[in-house]
Simulated scan of single mutants.
Amino acid sequence: MKANKSITFRALPLAEFAQLALQETYESFLFNTNRHLLLQKNPNVWVFGAEQNQKILARCNIFLNESVGYSPWRMSFGGIEFCPKLSYEVLHNFVVFLTSFCKQELQLQKLHIKQYPFSYTESNSHLLTQILLQNGFSVQNQELTQYIQVNQPFEENLHLSEKRRLQKALKAGFVVEWWQNPDWKQVFTFVAEARKRRSFPLTMNETDFYETVATFPEKYSVFVVKKNAEIVALTVGVKVSRKVFYNFYPADNPSFLSYSPMVLLTKGLVDFCKEQSFEILDLGISTENGKANTGLIRFKKNLGSQNALKLSFVKILD
């Protein structure tokens, strides 16, 4: 434990840290909450926090495996979260504390930290990136994500080609709806088949998927495009925070690809986000280990999206 002008830096195993019941000065992203960390199937996780007056100002969760630390272990991102009002000096010192503790107390030789997209907290992301680079971290991987600002008029920002596809789907009688009591086995099978067809990896196996949606039924939602009773396309959406809704597992039916049902599905997601007061619809990455999927980037751009980096950092603790 280290104090800094009434701010305390602390590192504890997750079970001990959770007992502190500290009040947040910012909203944690879902994947970095205590309950969600338990789903990552690595019990050896330490929580690093900056605290003041029983309030948490900054936090990072590090999973241990042999002599390497990971944030996250198995999830879209982990990383360092912090209050936007936190000073440069305190955040810098927190990063120094984290790396020193990992090296000296946990005997780690390397740290991997995958941050959330810049679009989630742009100012924080710029600040943290500079501090990590100044403290010996290097960029291990850079992914490109796209997102839609929900307060913008969706159809006006569509490319002409996507406007035509949207009208084609609507004229064919397609409808988009929120599937409020989904058959999760049917959902997983539909997603798995679509991703296999496109040679996209599944980031969760079937057992982990069911456990996750059962643990957080209020955070995971399914949206479907239908033609009568037949599913044309669907996606699993995640409420990452009050601000961010994540289009996690989009999938389509190969029989209806000529209608580009993802355009209508995206419109449904944007409408839902507006109704629920989200600010950002995260469309996910369009790269794989930094290699661009140019067709996917073009499609998302045609949907009116904007670009944001998602960086992964590494540091050798020598």
Rank of each mutant, 00 (worst) to 15 (best):
K5S: 00
F9C: 09
P13H: 04
A15V: 05
E16C: 09
Q19C: 06
A21H: 15
E27K: 12
S28L: 12
N34Q: 10
W46E: 03
A50L: 08
Q54V: 00
K55Q: 15
I56V: 09
I62Y: 03
R74C: 06
R74K: 12
F77V: 00
G78T: 03
C83Q: 10
C83H: 14
K85P: 01
K85D: 15
L86A: 04
V90F: 10
F97D: 02
T99G: 06
T99E: 14
S100R: 14
F101Y: 15
Y116S: 07
F118V: 03
T121V: 05
L132H: 09
L133S: 00
N135A: 11
N135E: 12
V139W: 11
N141F: 13
E143F: 08
I148F: 15
Q152W: 11
P153Y: 11
F154K: 10
E156P: 04
H159E: 10
S161N: 10
K163V: 03
L166W: 08
Q167G: 04
G173E: 09
G173F: 14
G173S: 12
V176I: 13
P182L: 08
D183Q: 07
Q186G: 05
Q186C: 11
V191A: 07
A192N: 09
E193W: 08
K196P: 00
S199N: 15
E206Q: 12
F209I: 04
T212D: 08
A214D: 14
T215C: 11
T215I: 03
I231W: 15
V236A: 07
G237K: 03
V238C: 12
F256E: 02
L264G: 02
K267A: 01
L269R: 10
C273I: 06
S277Y: 15
S277N: 15
L281K: 04
L281D: 08
N289G: 07
G295R: 12
F299P: 03
K301W: 07
S305V: 02
V314H: 08
D318G: 07
